[in-house]
């Protein structure tokens, strides 16, 4: 690279524009690839896009902080997207109301099962309290999970990574697992995806079936509520 090229790169690499563009391009490429592979569970668009963007950071030696200055505009939209879930919830209000009992029971059982099993396994491996506190809200949508982890004495950035990994694991495994359990009720399948794997599971559920996506969105919202209340209690009981 010549000096002029280098100074241009130094300028561009520090502007939010470059990394915002990289984030959107990585998403477009990943979404096309996922569609070309017939939306196979393993070809998860988020996983592919994260690999592309993280590879670009590693290749250029760019710190995450610089990247996030551009990407924060996308990250910010997680909040409004959570609010926007009210629209499919309203559209399907009659279906939702009919399933109010199964939803309430599944919400409590699933939320406790996911959180307790993660914390018990992590404790058995001898992980320190900060990691446990970051792990407790792993099934909750990223923005809310970071807040919960911070208030429990965990590391919000680590919590965000564990949340994304949980979402990817859930999105990849939900279809084969539900088929193995012979569950054909798309309300139950979607609700499980949203509860255990938050927005990434919800995105996967919307790809599979619109009703599943709607129930996933409800589970995502309800679990953010329930986990915010449960996490401090469960963590205190285990430590």
């Amino acid at each position: 690279m010549s000096d002029a090229d280098f100074s241009l790169w130094v300028y561009l690499s520090r502007t939010p524009l470059l990394w915002l563009t990289v984030t959107l391009l990585a998403y477009v490429a990943a979404d096309r690839l996922s569609a070309a592979l017939g939306r196979h569970p393993l070809a998860n668009p988020i996983l592919i896009a994260v690999l592309l963007a993280a590879g670009m950071l590693a290749a250029t030696g760019t710190p995450y902080r610089t990247y996030f200055e551009g990407a924060q505009f996308v990250h910010f939209l997680i909040g409004p997207a959570t609010v926007a879930l009210a629209v499919p919830l309203h559209r399907h209000r009659r279906t939702v109301w009919r399933a109010i009992l199964p939803m309430g029971a599944a919400l409590l059982a699933g939320s406790l099962a996911a959180m307790l099993s993660a914390l018990l396994i992590a404790r058995a491996f001898g992980m320190p309290e900060t990691v446990l506190a970051s792990l407790a809200p792993k099934s909750v949508t990223a923005g809310v999970a970071m807040g919960i982890a911070g208030s429990l004495g965990g590391d919000p950035a680590l919590a965000a990574v564990l949340v994304i990994l949980t979402g990817a694991i859930g999105a990849v495994t939900v279809t084969p697992l539900m088929n193995a359990l012979r569950l054909r009720d798309y309300r139950a399948r979607g609700f499980a995806a949203g509860l255990a794997a938050h927005g990434i599971g919800t995105a996967r559920a919307f790809h599979v079936d619109f009703m599943a996506g709607t129930f996933a969105g409800i589970a995502l919202a309800l679990n953010a509520l329930v986990s915010a209340v449960l996490a401090p209690v469960v963590l205190r009981a285990l430590l």
Partner: peptide
């Protein structure tokens, strides 16, 4: 922890939902 708890969370949620329904 992540793989086991996610599978457990998915299975328990879906089975309880379908069972209560």
């Amino acid at each position: 922890a992540l793989v086991a708890s996610t599978l457990i969370g998915l299975a328990v949620t879906a089975l309880v939902f379908a069972g209560v329904a």
